[in-house]
Design a protein around this nucleic acid. Structure first.
Lengths: 254, 254
DNA sequence: TATCGTTATTTGTCAAACAAAAAGGGGATT
DNA sequence: AATCCCCTTTTTGTTTGACAAATAACGATA
């Protein structure tokens, strides 16, 4: 059974109103923080009922183009483009694609590793003293003795984020943020299984040293070693998990 | 006047319902092409009225997560992830960010070049015979003599898209699609200024040869040479354009 | 058997009303 | 006179009930 995908968005009244308002925004007639007419006024203007207007507004609100507040000074206002919201909606879209089976976790991990290598290379060229200091601080934190698994994991995430920031490219930062968000549930499981943190921190130190020396190739090599190590650990853990699962299914002892 | 941006999405009933349904999809309990309950059933399930349910559904429809059709066999269905739609919304958002000054075109071009290098490396490893044949066909087309600029440009885009496809990673394909879409207006101007197509095709041949030989390093090197050449041409064209502009401002001939 | 009309089902739209939030003004109190 | 509280007004959020339109399935008829 083939589903007809050629006309996804039907030309209903609500959709047409949404389109019209969006064009007003895109054309610049409605500027950022402008207030558009009340729902009643829009309803009379477009010759439709208020619920229909509301459906149209909800469509735009879902894309963060407008916001609304109640009250006398309230109403519906035009939103400016906000990178955080964009990154968030993008990462939710990425997780949805993973959930729907369009992307495997392995493919996602590959892209993440390759893109982080880019960040590493750019970071070695563009890094500032502040970024380097931040990385050193995270390494020191990771070496401190009484440290919970969650704290170590959070510091690890911050360390990798610092690499991305040091590259100094907002678009790269944006893409990495989305991908890492999509990988979070998995990466947590990975990190939690790796008991031997020392190896990971050693890799972090190698990366930070190479970035400090502005040696892009060495930084990328160190990162690749880290990725390989984590991947091996994950595969081993997965194998152990499967063996454990088969064991408890064969003998169901408490 | 500072607007409070800390809580953009209010926890209204409609929003909560949209969140709930989205989680059902993300968690996999609702699979692609599954039909969710009718609006009335959803209304009774969530203890709200039907218009409220409709607002929630419209929110999800605006993000292409669901589609609806009227009639007995109609209803609301879960949409599969459509890379084109997602890439489109993403690229419009990206152009907005460029317009707002968050991202410079130079940064965008850098990311594009670096990511295409990734694609090149993966393509050298994963390519199929079909992808290679497609690339050869585009090269042959680009060498054919009476060819309009637009046709050459279109073939160039297809060639680079084939590299991305040959990498065999849908996430990479998705990201590249979005970035290239965002760069299209600029890249058109570049290609149209470069008269000397022969050099570009030579680079294409070098890339295809390297991918055919599964030599990742050579492929990446060839791509980097191409990128450098195009960038130089663009800079030269920009310089010429500026000189020309200063000339016609000084002497307003004809 | 094939074709056409009917019907049931489901989304799309409308209308009127009430609830809730929030800003501003007016009055009472200190 | 200043401050605090309440009340009114405006606007979005939600409910109820109804009708319109599309469309797939079923049944009747040629």
């Amino acid at each position: 059974m083939v589903f007809r995908h050629d006309q996804i968005v039907t030309a209903t009244a609500a959709n047409q109103i949404a389109e019209a308002i969006q064009q007003e925004i895109a054309s610049g007639r409605l500027k950022v923080d402008d207030r558009l007419p009340t729902e009643e006024e829009l309803a009379t203007q477009f010759r439709v009922s208020r619920p229909t207007v509301r459906e149209a507004l909800k469509r735009l609100a879902a894309r963060h183009l407008i916001r609304s507040r109640r009250g006398p000074a309230g109403g519906t206002f035009v939103n400016g483009p906000s990178p955080e919201e964009m990154a968030q909606s993008f990462s939710t879209a990425a997780t949805l694609m993973v959930a729907a089976g369009g992307i495997t976790l392995d493919q996602m991990a590959t892209v993440r590793a390759e893109m982080e290598a880019i960040c590493c290379r750019l970071a070695a060229e563009q890094r500032s003293a502040e970024h380097l200091a931040g990385m050193r601080a995270e390494i020191a934190l990771q070496l401190s003795e009484p440290l919970l698994d969650e704290e170590f994991c959070a510091s690890d995430v911050r360390f990798h984020r610092l690499i991305v920031d040091a590259a100094g490219n907002p678009l790269l930062r944006f893409l990495m943020n989305a991908i890492v968000e999509g990988l979070l549930p998995v990466s947590n499981m990975i990190i939690f299984r790796v008991r031997d943190r020392k190896t990971i921190v050693d890799h972090h130190i190698r990366i930070a040293d190479a970035i400090e020396a502005r040696d892009a190739d060495r930084a990328v090599a160190a990162l690749n070693d880290l990725v390989r190590y984590v991947r091996d650990q994950y595969a081993a853990a997965e194998k152990g998990r499967l063996e454990y699962a088969s064991k408890i299914t064969s003998t169901k002892g408490e």
